[in-house]
Amino acid sequence: MTSCHIAEEHIQKVAIFGGTHGNELTGVFLVKHWLENGAEIQRTGLEVKPFITNPRAVKKCTRYIDCDLNRIFDLENLGKKMSEDLPYEVRRAQEINHLFGPKDSEDSYDIIFDLHNTTSNMGCTLILEDSRNNFLIQMFHYIKTSLAPLPCYVYLIEHPSLKYATTRSIAKYPVGIEVGPQPQGVLRADILDQMRKMIKHALDFIHHFNEGKEFPPCAIEVYKIIEKVDYPRDENGEIAAIIHPNLQDQDWKPLHPGDPMFLTLDGKTIPLGGDCTVYPVFVNEAAYYEKKEAFAKTTKLTLNAKSIRCCLH
């Protein structure tokens, strides 16, 4: 018999989150649709729960009410004593943790798909938090293969000092899905179709896995975050240069030392320094102006996964 890495157990509980950011409308629209008619997301033997994560922000069509829901799922915020004085999103995070967690427990949901849009030209993107997770690498390989020839990129946010504390991190297997470009507060049919297909293929993978299909060893190309880059700023902290036209919409493309990065209003080009080629992502993302992030630098690498098969009882 072929030796293989056996994944822990079959997958039982899956959640699909929309509206973690209330103005990213593809996930909101799909989740609302699936709450009314969820036939397309159901798979035999699998509990799939669509869920609106930040209903107040969705109602106002804004990213958040008090603070970013997708950055506060750490033990400090989840452990705060519940009171009306807490920011709305912290209270909501505790409610979500109660419903789908608790985080880092045996009772937490197996998989959470968190649906997002970006204003950046990132196409279909899967966000991975753990480079050693054979199950998710296999799932992402399946999704990428199923979507081809449509490109699907994998963004690895594993980093020693950049801690995200994402909404989906309460699950055993957290999956971020990011599709763009799409303006905030807008629905685009092409973007919706791409996100819908990503979810379909992900659920198909889980179904095949649960039925005992063995997935042979595989490898995927990923883009691992190195650092986030702020806009150049003046002495008052105001933005002093904008994304250069040569960099705009060039997510995932190589940016070499000396290539144009920013452009000042008086026409001066600010190039990339250093001696390493990087791959920019979230270029000129609207939501990241407040976070002082013009783009993120990534490096390209390959992740390998062992063969996996479900432990059938």
Rank of each mutant, 00 (worst) to 15 (best):
E36F: 07
N117W: 03
K213L: 10
L30K: 05
K80F: 13
L156E: 01
Q12S: 14
K80E: 13
I72V: 14
P280K: 01
F209K: 04
D130C: 01
H207A: 14
L156M: 10
N70H: 08
R56G: 13
I226P: 03
Y288F: 15
E227V: 02
G273N: 10
R92F: 04
A296R: 11
E129M: 06
N284H: 05
T26S: 15
F295P: 06
G180N: 03
G123F: 04
I143D: 00
E290A: 11
P217C: 06
L156H: 05
T277A: 08
E36W: 06
L147R: 04
T167Q: 09
H141V: 02
L75M: 14
A148F: 13
N304Q: 13
Y155R: 15
L147T: 00
H201Q: 01
A241W: 05
L192V: 13
G180E: 00
Y155F: 14
Y223F: 12
S105R: 11
E129T: 08
P245L: 03
K253V: 08
A240Q: 11
T2P: 15
Q138A: 03
L35Y: 07
I191R: 00
E106I: 12
D259T: 00
D249Q: 02
G180Q: 04
T20L: 05
H207W: 11
S120E: 04
G18W: 03
L312H: 15
L312F: 15
R233Y: 06
K268N: 10
E285I: 03
E8T: 12
E293C: 15
G185N: 10
G18Q: 05
K224P: 00
I11K: 13
S108Q: 14
A241F: 04
V229Q: 10
L46C: 09
F100K: 03
T119I: 04
K13Q: 06
H208A: 14
T62F: 09
I206C: 10
I225Y: 15
S307D: 05
L35H: 08
P55W: 09
Q250E: 08
I199E: 03
Q12Y: 03
G18L: 00
R168H: 09
E106G: 13
I225L: 15
Q248F: 04
L303S: 02
G274M: 02
P216Q: 08
R309F: 05
H256G: 08
K268Q: 12
F140W: 04
H208R: 11
Y164I: 12
D66I: 01
L265I: 10
K49E: 09
L115M: 09
I112E: 05
A219W: 07
H21N: 08
I239E: 01
T2S: 14
S131R: 11
I96H: 06
H33C: 07
L99C: 11
C67G: 08
A296I: 08
G22W: 08
P183R: 01
N133F: 02
A57D: 02
Y289V: 14
D234N: 11
E293R: 11
E36N: 12
E106Q: 13
H244M: 06
E40V: 05
E221N: 05
K228Q: 09
Y109T: 07
A15L: 03
L99W: 12
N304L: 09
N54V: 02
L147Y: 02
V222W: 03
I226N: 08
I239T: 07
H207V: 15
N284L: 01
K80P: 14
I225K: 15
E76H: 12
T277S: 08
T118D: 02
T298Y: 00
K197V: 10
K81N: 13
W34N: 04
G258T: 09
I157G: 15
R92L: 11
G22P: 15
D251K: 02
K13M: 00
A219Q: 14
Y153Q: 11
S131H: 09
E221P: 03
P174T: 15
F262P: 01
Y173F: 14
Y173M: 14
R91E: 13
D85H: 13
G22R: 09
D68V: 01
R43I: 00
R132A: 13
V278E: 00
T277K: 07
R56T: 11
A305T: 00
S161K: 13
E129C: 06
E95R: 12
V222L: 01
Y153V: 00
G19K: 04
N121H: 08
A286S: 12
C276I: 14
N121D: 00
M122L: 11
D104H: 15
P217G: 07
N284F: 03
D68H: 05
V229H: 01
M261I: 15
R43G: 01
I41T: 01
D251C: 15
C152L: 09
G274S: 06
M261Y: 04
T166W: 10
S3V: 08
F113K: 02
P217Q: 08
F73M: 13
L46Y: 08
E36C: 08
I41C: 05
D107Q: 13
G212Q: 02
C152E: 00
E293A: 14
G274P: 01
D204S: 04
T302W: 11
L126A: 02
I6T: 15
I112F: 02
Y223H: 11
T53V: 12
G19S: 00
I225Q: 15
N246A: 13
S146L: 09
I6Q: 15
T53A: 15
P55H: 10
T125S: 09
K300F: 00
L136V: 07
D114L: 00
D193F: 14
D110F: 03
F262H: 02
I127Q: 06
E235P: 09
P245Q: 00
K306Y: 08
D204K: 04
P260D: 07
Y64R: 07
V58L: 07
Y231D: 00
V175P: 03
H21Y: 14
C67T: 14
S120A: 14
P245I: 04
L46D: 03
K81T: 14
D193W: 13
L78G: 10
K81H: 13
E158S: 06
Y288D: 15
D204N: 07
D85T: 13
Q248L: 13
F215N: 06
N304E: 14
I96L: 13
D74A: 12
F215L: 05
E227S: 07
H10R: 15
I143T: 05
I6F: 13
K291T: 10
H201S: 10
I220N: 02
R92W: 05
L136F: 06
R43Y: 02
L86Y: 11
R196G: 01
I270A: 01
C218P: 03
E24G: 01
P87R: 11
E84H: 13
K59L: 10
A287S: 14
M198Y: 02
H208P: 05
H159Y: 08
D110Y: 03
D66Y: 06
A219Y: 07
E89D: 06
G176S: 12
T166Y: 10
E214I: 13
I157H: 15
R56H: 12
F17H: 06
G45W: 02
I170F: 09
L128P: 03
I239R: 10
D193C: 11
E89S: 04
T125W: 02
L128G: 06
R43H: 01
L128Y: 04
D266S: 09
H21A: 13
I308S: 00
R309T: 08
R91Q: 13
D114N: 02
D234P: 06
M122A: 14
T118M: 04
C311Q: 15
R71V: 10
V229S: 00
N37P: 06
L255F: 07
A286R: 10
D74W: 09
F209T: 03
L303P: 04
T166S: 14
M198N: 03
I157N: 15
T302C: 08
G22C: 07
A305I: 01
E24I: 05
I157C: 15
L147G: 01
Y288T: 15
A287Y: 10
T119Q: 00
H98P: 07
T26Q: 04
D249G: 11
T26N: 04
H244W: 00
A286L: 05
T145P: 05
R43M: 01
P271L: 09
C276H: 14
Y289N: 15
A39I: 11
N77G: 12
D110W: 04
F262C: 04
N37F: 07
R91W: 09
R168C: 10
T44P: 15
S169T: 10
A7W: 11
T167N: 08
A240F: 08
F17N: 00
E285D: 15
A286V: 10
D66R: 02
L25M: 15
S105Q: 12
P183C: 10
L86R: 10
Y164H: 15
L99R: 12
E36A: 11
V179Q: 05
G123S: 01
L86T: 13
N23G: 06
E89T: 02
L203K: 04
I206D: 02
N117G: 04
E290P: 11
S83M: 13
N134G: 06
I112Y: 04
W252H: 04
L147W: 04
E293T: 14
K103I: 11
Y153R: 15
R56D: 13
